[in-house]
Design a protein around this nucleic acid. Structure first.
Lengths: 192, 192, 192, 192
DNA sequence: GATGAATGAGTGTTCATTCAT
DNA sequence: GATGAATGAACACTCATTCAT
């Protein structure tokens, strides 16, 4: 007389909203996903969403905050390490894992840059990216080497999504992407 | 009694629409740019836009077609060449130039991927990117080398925009980006 | 371990709702004040309001009933007196005091006439005002004298609020308002 | 084959919106009148309203500006006259006429004070009222006489609406109201 | 070559209210 | 004596698009 669909779901609506929203945001983009659509997928009314979140943007912010915490942690950790090659390689390695762990979010971020720029998470994301860059890049290095680091970052970010239509086992692809990124960072470090 | 601002502009409204639209699309994104806004910037009515273009999407398509013709040409040319390293390097070199020549468009494309995917130019762009990839990538190459080529492409695409907040002369930066991309393609070619 | 803010407040929530509601109604108007706002000011949930009052309107009605009882009493008293000038003057005098004693409520009533007209208290208030008028006005008097009485009433009502941006001691202003109202009623009585 | 309802109405939509809006605003209040309601009365869509006015508030502002121009003119005229009793009496006389000429607007203003205070016309109206007061009131006069002038103003404003449920010919009532207001101003002037 | 006027479908958001707990 | 979760109806407003002139 218990454990029904309805009952089990009580209390987890907030989480379900985030799940569905991220799915739809990643699939269709932020602007093209309406709150009506999210609500319908969850079989609740639009107003229910507003019980759990103050605005549409806040849904996105909450998803971002929840899912990108590991990356925040990683950057903080990286900031406290010496700027050696080994550290940089380790950062890249861990970053690759962190990105894979929140793939839908990062796919969304990459494909909705124009939108995100105007949103609160735009600042947060930009800030994070810059801190990450400052760890990897030596400001006195040659321009080419700076580009190599940026390229490494981009390769990691974009890798997953673009590789989707390349044949092959996902984990193998991730490894390959990681290798290229590591190479780039290593070359950049030695370049100078 | 002629040659005034008004008079000189007669006949070039279509072009002016494209210019303003691209500027706004690149700045704010496609969805967040309304036809009202475009019209106001041009000091004409929304209805005037519809004299020149059938839909909002068509404005974008026309911009894309006009500005990306050099790239279309490049890919066609590349397709007819032997798949040697020299060819690949030349492609990368020319591609870098072509991207720089239509920077606002490509910035727009990169920042509005989610939107573009649903639009006609999504197909066009994807198709082009795949043809370009097929020229650079040897399907029998190791996965890592395939990633290197993709990374080269991405470095070219993203390079310009991300590099904006790195200090240094724009042309120098473009050269650096080109060098990294060329390196990647070269390594990929030799890898096998 | 007792007598804390929390503890002392137990049991007086109903009263606190009325206080906060009146304050907000008077400040922002009835329609622009939402139950969410009232609840937040009290640090309870909206649902709590519904434990104490059946509807938003009932909150207002209860405030009106509680605060305007002295006026109800006055009018009843007035109805039982002979319609002499002395009675009229006494009514005006007492009315002035009664209004001052529930100033926020009457400020609210005056500034939200359109809203109130559709509410239950609209009828109550109108009814009261008419009974009051019938005591002051001789139906056979000249039109001008009737107007004088109505004007006296209005002067009393509006006096307090409009006088706010006139310099001077509040009690002095009330006295002045009362004097003018008394004059008007007196002139009206003698006019015929 | 012309002069139909549809045809004759083309071009006067803006005016019709103002008319219907004022009617509904005066009847039900500003907040309780929705744009849907206004649109339905006119047999157009809500969006059509937005072709003619930028916001709901702007509809109200435009009505206010159009209808209260005579009063603005009157106040300006009054500001240029010497502050004699005769001037004051003339102002009162003209003001009475001006109010009667835009009765629905002023009924609306009086019954929606709380709402108006937050709107742009709140400032405009308050500003006007103060300038009018400054013409009628001698700042060195006794407090009672100042009240008399304010009372005169209020009598004029409120007179019309409250008098609605007094029997008698409207013009006769207006005359009576005017007489009482003039008396008040005259007494105030001689008081000092 | 362009405008004035309008539409239909949609958006995000807010509200008073309900009810099981 | 109060909350957590939700609803249904409404709201002001915006959009791409149309079409007669």
């Amino acid at each position: 007389m218990d454990g029904t669909h309805q009952q089990r779901r009580r209390g987890d609506t907030r989480q379900r909203i985030q799940d569905v929203a991220l799915e739809l945001f990643a699939e269709q983009g932020y602007e093209k996903t309406s709150l009506r659509e999210i609500a319908e997928h969850l079989d609740v009314t639009k107003a229910a969403l507003y019980y759990h979140f103050k605005t549409k943007e806040e849904i996105l912010v909450s998803i971002f905050e929840d899912l990108s915490q590991p990356i925040e942690d990683l950057i903080e950790w990286g900031g406290r390490q010496p700027h050696t090659l080994a550290t940089k390689q380790e950062i890249v390695r861990r970053y690759s894992g962190a990105l894979a762990g929140a793939a839908p979010l990062f796919r969304f971020m990459q494909e909705n840059q124009a939108t995100i720029r105007e949103l609160r998470i735009g600042e947060m994301f930009k800030d994070r990216t810059l801190r990450l860059r400052d760890i990897l890049i030596d400001p006195d290095a040659e321009l080419v080497d700076q580009v190599r680091c940026i390229s490494a970052l981009f390769t990691l970010h974009a890798g997953m999504f673009v590789m989707q239509d390349v044949e092959g086992d996902p984990e193998a692809k991730r490894k390959a992407v990681l290798e290229v990124a590591t190479d780039l960072v290593t070359q950049a470090h030695q370049g100078a």
